[in-house]
Write a protein that binds this DNA or RNA. Structure first.
Lengths: 206, 206
DNA sequence: GTCGAACTTGACATCGACTGACAAGTTCGA
DNA sequence: TCGAACTTGTCAGTCGATGTCAAGTTCGAC
């Protein structure tokens, strides 16, 4: 058993948060993201606009907010990968954490429209890309530490780790595009595998 | 001779635009991007806030606006690359268009602080990444057309072109980071070359 | 049970980016 | 020189986001 009762307050907070997010998603799908006002969302759940911002720091977070938590987990997974493992493989295993959010039973119905909204709304796409970039920054630090600990540190101005990490994330994005282009048939995991075999690091170990 | 006098109105417009941008840059460097109001910029050049928005659609464009024009040129260069050329090489040659903006004599003094501002300001970074993404979308289309014209089209759901293009842009970003991390010593062109040798497409021709 | 601290909420005000509308002035060519 | 086209400032308004304050509401110590 994990933490069963993480405080009543926290539980109701999560519940309200979920309610807001779901109302927002419904409106976004119905009218579009830009066309939906935070006031509209507030009205839909019967609270003030001010209160919506008490649960979500920005309107963007109503859609891409949960990603921050996943990103933390991904970073943890990456750090726990064995030091001798090829970087490309470490990245692939890190992306595994994303898979259940899409491939788990019943998940596709939610994930597909969300991804379509993100990729078709400029400001949301920008926000998403920025979050990916932050994660890449952290991954870069992690891999440099790992290399240093293994006695083969990268020079500060060596583009290698960032380039490899960036290429891996580019494959992730290509996988998302391909998955959507194919009408979300097949598993997301397979899409990632396919994308990550089209590109490869030149020397993948340290 | 190119177009020597593209209309007086257009010339003065460009001049005013440049004046606004330079005033903005000065303020951004001095106080930071978020801390500078569009009203401040307007006051600095002695016009109304409304008029600044007549020359630049958004505050972001005061910094990353010129990139749109360069992106058009890059796309044109990419399309003019020979059909049989390896994609990775085509991308590298496309990036050549960026080089003079940084490596040309006297350019570094301007380019370096700008890049630092972009990479350290979340909203600017997001905007920049989104513009790169748009360019990648267009490049994806271009390369698919090129492959189709050569009699070896990609399947709609094939992640290959996007993955390779994305990897190339990841190297570009890694090059920028590395260049900045090294204090902008050396040429940007060399930084790109270094980054683009760390990763490579698996099969690079169609 | 009760009381006070901690938390939550709505209401109001403000800021900054941005947009529409209008009126006044400037420029340019027929 | 006259009128169309363009530019500008001003004003008002929208929307996302933040600070403040005065109600409640909840929760634990007593």
């Amino acid at each position: 058993m994990t933490d069963s009762q993480p405080d009543l307050r926290e539980r109701t907070r999560r519940a309200v948060q979920k309610e807001i997010a779901e109302a927002a998603h419904a409106l976004f799908v119905e009218r579009g993201y830009e066309e939906t006002t935070v006031g509209d969302i507030a009205a839909a759940v019967g609270m003030s606009q001010r209160s919506v911002f008490r649960y979500f720091p920005t309107k963007e977070d109503l859609i891409v907010g949960k990603f921050d938590l996943v990103a933390d987990d991904m970073l943890r997974v990456l750090r726990e990968r064995p030091a001798g493992e090829p970087v490309w493989e470490s990245m692939r295993r890190t992306f595994d954490l994303l898979v259940p959010y899409v491939d788990a039973p019943g998940r596709r119905q939610v994930a597909e429209p969300m991804q379509r909204i993100v990729f078709s709304t400029p400001t949301l796409l920008a926000g998403y890309l920025q979050k990916l970039q932050l994660l890449q920054d952290a991954a870069d630090t992690a891999l440099r530490e790992r290399a240093a600990a293994a006695g083969a540190p990268y020079r500060a101005g060596d583009p290698t780790p960032r380039a490899i990490i960036g290429a891996a994330f580019a494959c992730l994005l290509a996988a998302q595009h391909a998955w959507l282009a194919d009408g979300a048939e097949g598993t997301f995991a397979a899409a990632i595998d396919r994308a990550m075999t089209t590109v490869t690091p030149v020397t993948d170990m340290r």
